[in-house]
Design a binder for these strands. Sequence first.
DNA 1: GCAGATGCGCAAGTAATACTATTATATTTG
DNA 2: CAAATATAATAGTATTACTTGCGCATCTGC
Lengths: 228, 228
Amino acid sequence: MRSLFSQFSIKVNDKIYLKNPDESELGKRIIESSIILIDELGIEQFTFRKLGQRIGSPESTIYRYFENKHKLLVYLISWYWCWLEYRLVFSLANIESPTERLERAIDVLTGDIEQDDAFEHIDEVKLNRIVISESAKVYLTKAVDDENKLGLFGVYKNLVDRVVVIIRELHPEFQHPHSLISTVIEGAHQQKYFAQHLPSLTDITEDGGTVQDFFKQMVFCMIVRSKR
Amino acid sequence: MRSLFSQFSIKVNDKIYLKNPDESELGKRIIESSIILIDELGIEQFTFRKLGQRIGSPESTIYRYFENKHKLLVYLISWYWCWLEYRLVFSLANIESPTERLERAIDVLTGDIEQDDAFEHIDEVKLNRIVISESAKVYLTKAVDDENKLGLFGVYKNLVDRVVVIIRELHPEFQHPHSLISTVIEGAHQQKYFAQHLPSLTDITEDGGTVQDFFKQMVFCMIVRSKR
DNA sequence: GCAGATGCGCAAGTAATACTATTATATTTG
DNA sequence: CAAATATAATAGTATTACTTGCGCATCTGC
C-alpha cells in the first residue's frame, strides 16, 4: 500500500515558499518539526529560532525556505486542504448515488483524522489540530487580499468547489451551496474546538461523532427543504 | 432618547482590565482610539506604542489599564457581545410569538450594525468590523482554558443562551441548540468576511441582506424538520 | 488647609522577536 | 576539477512587549 503512494506528493502554490521544503531532507525536517512545535506552542509562541534549535539549524537557514512564520503556516494549512481533497476524491471513487456522495463528502470534511502513512514526515493528527485552532488566522489578516491575488487560497476553493458540484447535482437551483459548504467546514472545526475548550457554546461532547450528524442534518435539511 | 441611555454602561468581567477604562476620560480615549487603530491596522500591527502616540500618552500609562493588547481586544469583543445582548433584549421586548422572537434574534445576530449614539466614545460600525476579523483570535489561543476559568467569555455564553431559550420554546427536544446558534453567529461573520475578501467561498454579495436570509433558512429548516 | 493616596507623564532599560548580512565550509553538478 | 549551491556559524539591527522608578499634579478625607 505505502509503496503506491510514496510516489505522490502534495503540490501547493509555489508562491507560498522561497524554496520547496518537499525537495530536500532539511526541508522535510522543517515541516515535520514545525507541525510538532506549532501544535505544542501555538503559532503565537512558535518562532523560527525555536524551530532551528529543534532541528539543529540556525534560523537563517529556515528563512531560506519561508519568508516568515505566517507563510509557513499558510504552507501547512494548504497542504492539509490538498491532502483532504485527495482523501475526498478517493472516498467518492466509484460511488454513484449523489446522496451517498454528499454524505461521504461531509464525513471527510467533518470527521476525525487518522494518520496517513503515505506521508511519513507529516503527522496528520497534529496537523488537524493545527488546522482547527490556527487556520482562521491564515486569512484573518490585513494581507488577505494580496495573498488571495497570489492564489494562496486556491486549494481551499478547490475543495469547496468539489462539494458544491455534488450539491448542484442533487439540487441545481439551491441558492447558497458555497456558503453552506464553507459554513460546514469552518463550523465543524469550531464545534470541535468549543467541545474541548468552551463546552457551553456547543452540544457536542468531546468524543466526536455528533459533529458529523449535526452538519449532515444541516446540509440535507437545507437542500431538501428548499427544493419545494 | 440619548439622555435615557446615557445612564447605562456596559459591564464586562472585571478581570479583563487592571483599571476600568469606563471610569476615566483617559480610559475612554484609550477605548475610542484603540477601536479606530485596530480597525485600521489589524491586531497584529497594533501596538500600545502606536496607541499612546495617538492619544498623546506614553505606553506605560496604557499598561496601567490593560495587561497587554490581547486583553484589550478581549475587552472590546466582550463589550460588543454585551451591547448586542442589550440590543437583542430590546428587539424582543413585547414580542409574543416565539417564531417572530427567533426571527428577530437572528436579525440581531446576523444583521448590519448601525452607530448607537448611547455610547459616544464607541464606534459600533468599526467595532463590528473588528469583531468580524479579530474575534476568533480571542479564543483561538493556548490561554483559552485559563481565560475561560476567569469567566472572560461569560458574556458570549449569555448571548447564546438567550437565543437557545427561544429555540427551546419552539422545539423543546431539539438536540443542538447551542451548536446551531454559535454556528450562526460565527458563520455570519465568516460569510461577510468571505464576501469581502474571498468571494469564491460564499454566495453572498457584498451588499448584505442575504446573510440574514441564509441563516434564517438554516435555523428554521433545522428546527422544523427535526420536529417530526 | 494639609497629609496621603492616586493617577499620569517622562525617561530609561530589558529581553525577546523578527528579521538581515557576512563569511566559511561542505556538497552537488556540469 | 571548477563552479554553483546549500548550509552552518556568527553577528548585528529594528521593533515589540513589556518593566521600573521618579516626580508632579490632583483629588480625598479629616
